[in-house]
Simulated scan of single mutants.
Amino acid sequence: MNKDDQIMPSKKRGIICGLVISGWILLGAIIITVNCLPLYWVLVRHYHWGQSLGLNDQAAFREYLRVWQFLNFPIRTTIGGHLALSAPAQAHFKEVKYLVWGVYIGFIGITALIKPVWRWSHDAYSLWLARLVLRGVAGISICLASLAIVDFNDFFVIFHQLLFRNQDWLFDPRRDQIINLLPSYYFAICFGLFFALFIGGILLGSWVLFTQRQRE
């Protein structure tokens, strides 16, 4: 086998390894963000988002918990609670629930692949290429995070337009009171947390690959 024959499989292994690690970190960052209940508790106590609905901080947090439980528990078919929610808004939350569970299933599947892919691509060239993929992903993520910082409203709209094919995500505060507990500022902080976790995880993964390659 000549040198080129050896390099080509290593290229494929390195790229696949980098993509698998990136996907695992991506889904993990989403899961942590979705389930970061203390974040909402701190924010609702600071900004008192429930006041416009006649709710104290504890009651507002309970309404938020109903949304979280609906997204996380398959047996929950409705959000319930005391706040008005139109049919389109309920349909949107169901779509979000499908996405959340898609993330959970994808994370479990990729987690099962991590160890065999790592063993499969455990040579110096593959590790170098996997690290290169992670660095590229980090660069793209930093650019997206910068766009979100510059104009979060447009970023948020584009994000929804890419994920959803309808306009159900456009809530009317008069019919969808729950939106008063989920202001755009809250989502901006959630995106900030996600990008911090994802970019930090990618950089950490790149460092791990670098140290591992040094041993090869």
Rank of each mutant, 00 (worst) to 15 (best):
L147F: 14
N166M: 03
F156T: 05
G109E: 08
G192A: 05
L83A: 04
Q58Y: 11
D154H: 13
R45L: 11
S206R: 10
S22V: 02
A124V: 10
G23L: 09
L204F: 13
L26C: 13
L203F: 06
D151L: 02
K12D: 08
S184D: 14
G205E: 05
S126N: 01
P74F: 04
V117K: 11
R76I: 03
I149Q: 08
L55D: 04
L197E: 06
F187H: 02
G14K: 03
Y40K: 09
T78W: 00
K97D: 02
M1L: 09
L170I: 13
R135M: 11
N166A: 06
F187A: 00
Y185R: 13
K94M: 13
T33E: 04
W41A: 13
W118L: 15
S126K: 01
G201C: 02
D154M: 10
Q161F: 10
A148S: 14
V44H: 05
R215F: 03
L203V: 08
L197G: 02
N56M: 07
F171C: 04
L37E: 13
R215S: 11
R215E: 11
L203T: 02
Y125P: 00
F61D: 05
I31Y: 13
S121D: 06
R13G: 03
V137G: 00
L144P: 12
G192Y: 12
I21R: 01
F155V: 01
L197T: 06
V34S: 05
F155H: 04
I202G: 05
F191W: 11
Q177E: 11
L209Q: 07
G81Y: 01
A188S: 07
I158N: 13
L37R: 15
K12E: 13
P88Q: 02
F210V: 10
W128Y: 10
I179W: 00
C143S: 15
R66Q: 02
G201Y: 01
Q69W: 10
W68P: 00
G200I: 03
A196L: 14
C36M: 12
A148P: 12
W24F: 15
G139S: 01
V133C: 11
R45D: 09
I158H: 14
G109H: 07
I31K: 12
W120L: 14
W49Q: 07
N72M: 08
W128E: 14
S184I: 14
R119K: 15
T111M: 07
A91R: 07
H48F: 05
G28W: 05
V150Q: 02
I178W: 00
V44D: 11
F164A: 03
I79R: 00
L162S: 10
Y98C: 05
I110L: 15
C143Q: 15
L55R: 06
I202W: 03
A112S: 08
F73W: 14
W24D: 06
R135G: 04
C17T: 03
V42K: 05
L83M: 08
Y40V: 03
Q58L: 14
V137Y: 01
F187M: 01
R131G: 15
L181P: 05
W49V: 04
L39Y: 07
A89S: 09
S184Y: 09
Y98D: 12
I30T: 08
G109A: 15
Y104E: 12
G192R: 07
